[in-house]
Simulated scan of single mutants.
Amino acid sequence: MIRIATAQLWVHDQDEALKYWTDRVGFEVRSDVTVAEMGNFRWLTVGPPGQTDVAIVLMAIPGPPMVDPATDEQLRDLMGKGLAGTVFLTTDDCRRTHAELKERGVEFIGEPEEQLYGIDVGFRDPSGNNVRLSQLNADFG
């Protein structure tokens, strides 16, 4: 059986991303490992408490030789527009979770709204990644 273990978001600054995803969103650190043999590559993952079988990798944009300057610029531009990655989060009570996260400093794009599939609202992390928070109707969950 194949299962999803991790999904990845590009981040400008792993320390800033870690603080945001743990302090503001309320996720926990799953792994934070630096591999000296790979040029101090840092494998940093976070995930929601209670859902230990999946994590989000907060991946620093790699430099040369993996990414040339033009690609780096394109990636940063897409991130700034919220187009380089999206995470879809679900909750049992979108309005309550929205209020809790807002109180912790998460800046939302609008207010929770009724949609065909449930109640939904969005926010962006410090690197510009798009995040959707939804309370799904039974037909869509």
Rank of each mutant, 00 (worst) to 15 (best):
M1A: 04
I2V: 13
R3L: 00
I4S: 09
T6S: 07
T6W: 04
T6L: 06
L9Y: 03
V11P: 13
H12P: 04
Q14Y: 07
E16T: 08
E16F: 08
A17V: 05
A17C: 07
L18F: 07
L18Y: 09
T22W: 15
T22K: 15
V25I: 14
F27Y: 14
E28I: 13
V29A: 06
V29W: 04
R30D: 08
V33K: 05
T34K: 06
T34F: 05
E37P: 10
G39T: 02
F41M: 10
R42Y: 02
R42I: 01
R42Q: 04
W43V: 11
L44F: 03
T45C: 08
G50I: 09
G50E: 06
A55V: 09
I56L: 01
V57Q: 12
L58I: 00
P64F: 05
P65D: 10
P69Q: 05
P69D: 01
A70V: 01
A70P: 10
A70H: 12
T71W: 12
T71I: 09
D72Y: 11
R76F: 04
R76K: 05
M79Q: 09
G80P: 02
K81E: 12
A84L: 01
A84D: 07
G85R: 11
G85D: 08
G85L: 02
V87R: 08
T91H: 09
D92L: 13
D93F: 06
R95C: 11
K102F: 13
R104E: 15
G105K: 05
G105V: 11
G105H: 04
E107L: 09
G110S: 05
E113L: 02
E113N: 03
E113Q: 05
L116F: 09
G118N: 04
I119D: 00
D120L: 10
V121T: 01
R124P: 08
P126Q: 00
S127C: 09
N129S: 14
N130R: 11
V131C: 15
Q135E: 00
A138V: 14
A138G: 14
A138W: 14
D139T: 13
F140H: 14
G141F: 14
